[in-house]
Design a protein around this nucleic acid. Structure first.
Lengths: 329, 329
DNA sequence: CTGTTAGCGCGTTCAA
DNA sequence: TTGAACGCGCTAACAG
């Protein structure tokens, strides 16, 4: 491995000079710059990030905490979009990102997680799909030991931002369209997980609509499970003339249930996953741009992290961004 | 941040002593061990991996090069399985893994990739789904600058291993079952990507079967595309009495084509992705265990990497493992 | 504009 | 059995 010292010797300059041209510092004459560059080239020198990190202390990695949907594997698509969005943006911003599945942290206490992260030089966290029930992670964020960004969860503090789509509006919009299309009045709403943040915002959306249009609204929790949604429709589908679901996967379950009991009800979904193209049915849904959301999240940690270095930025404690793209059939 | 020095002072010992108990060195009295452990505990000391790495040079990360199936998003499932298998095993083996998408390396020359990896302290590579056409990566492996493991590609050398399922046998087995079930004689085989390694092995499997059973075999390349498969069936489906596809996604395309031209042909797939559960049709397929394959790949780089440290291991240049689980309907 | 020097936090000889 | 001291490769004052 070629070191900076060898480059310096080869070019006939001091180590620090090499370091300066490497890091684009001012106060280096064009001439020596050339020499150094040439030496770097000829020796195939590659700077060692580890050493640079240790020395400069400018090093920061961020943990990307995602879900592996073991129960509902079919929608790995969402996680994958998150991952690729985040990784690409991270590369662009030149920050290191390590992806971590919830399952890897399962059973660890907060302290253990903290230590694990610290030993890995992790200073930032991006957490996807946090739920109110995740005690440990709430403590973690509350401690403010890490600069964190919660995606789709309204967790904000001095060191925590949040990035999300306006779930309430999205749910309102798509359901409204469905209601108008079918001139429906009795709505069966299949919500997500109790205590899930998105779940509640979407509920607000549908409730507002129901009130506005004076609809008859029945609500059940489907836990984002296709099967649960199916069961709910089997039991209550007949009583409604429109079924609105808080996720596409549940919408699929709902549709199949309709077929099974031989009724037709328009179904409305949420997410816009590609899987929908394969079930051979059409429905109204909200297409979310998970890729963009993840990108925004990375930008946000980046800001939080650099704020630390004294760049003095006014933290926007509540970053609400609208990333739902459109309503599709 | 608590450093090793503070711990040493606190415990009233030397830095090196602390280091020794941290790394389980011999020749430290139980008594001082206790003292040190206690100090570590009370100070909440967390060793700094970066510094340790720099100092010991034992540091190695491996790049996980995967595909983001932008065209066929529905089968992110496979990539996801790869990722989780690899990440989990990596954690277990205590090696660092960074995931990299092909797309991030696109357009880079081999030299640029080498530099990028080296600057990141990457010494190992696991590459999924290499194809014969990936010139750059072939050069990369050939240079033997990194310890690498190719998944589903028969690339072996002093520093390269390969992990894969026996595609030939799997294709043979599943197709045989399909042939016997339907007493079929005229097979339409939709292969994968020309020049893909798996594609060719699967072709060998079907060819062997055709010869053995004296079947009439027609072959087309579907490029792993649902659409292509569909077109092929539209054009040639009628001439066959069994359609065998080299992937589930193509099988879906084939099935839909059959419906469109109103013929019935048994279709046989490959992979066993969950998506199949959603298309509302049943078929024979091979279920692969991508998770296990990825785990095996990580174990393999681990061995390669530690061989480097002089543990003197005899490299098995060809590691063929059978990870296809079963044939399902 | 360039070079000298002192660390960053830790692993590892080698004396003691 | 312990500890002082050196060095990993690099950055960042500080002098010159």
């Amino acid at each position: 491995m070629v070191t900076i010292k060898e480059v310096a010797d080869y070019a006939g300059v001091a180590i620090s000079t090499v370091s300066k041209v490497l890091n684009d510092y001012p106060n280096v004459s064009e001439n020596t710059k050339k020499k150094v560059r040439q030496a770097i080239d000829e020796l195939h020198y590659v700077p060692n990030t580890i050493a640079a990190a240790l020395s400069s202390k400018q090093f920061a990695r961020v943990a990307l905490i995602v879900n592996l949907n073991t129960q509902t594997q079919a929608i790995d698509e969402i996680t994958m979009q998150y991952l690729s969005g985040a990784l690409n943006k991270a590369r662009e911003k030149n920050i290191e990102v390590v992806t971590i599945f919830y399952s890897m942290l399962e059973g660890m206490t907060m302290d253990e997680i903290v230590r694990y992260f610290q030993s890995q030089s992790i200073f930032g966290i991006i957490i996807f799909g946090l739920s109110k029930d995740d005690k440990v992670f709430h403590e973690l964020l509350a401690k403010e030991l890490f600069k964190s960004v919660a995606v789709d969860a309204p967790f904000v503090s001095k060191s925590t931002s949040s990035v999300w789509v306006d779930n309430k509006k999205a749910q309102y919009d798509v359901a409204k369209k469905a209601v108008l299309d079918g001139n429906s009045h009795r709505i069966l709403y299949i919500a997500g997980k109790k205590n899930g943040y998105v779940t509640e915002y979407r509920l607000e959306g549908i409730r507002e609509l129901a009130q506005e249009k004076e609809l008859d609204l029945q609500i059940f929790y489907g836990e984002f499970s296709e099967l649960k949604a199916r069961e709910i429709v089997l039991e209550h589908g007949k009583e409604a003339d429109l079924i609105v679901c808080a996720s596409d996967l549940m919408a699929i379950g709902a549709m199949n249930a309709c077929i099974d009991i031989d009724i037709f009800r328009p179904v409305c979904g949420f997410d816009g996953i590609t899987l929908m193209g394969y079930v051979g049915k059409q429905m109204l849904t909200v297409r979310q741009d998970f890729y963009a959301v993840a990108q925004a999240a990375v930008e946000e940690v980046f800001l939080l992290l650099s704020g630390e270095k004294g760049r003095s930025r006014i933290l926007e404690h509540k970053l609400v961004k609208l990333y739902y793209q459109d309503i599709i059939c």
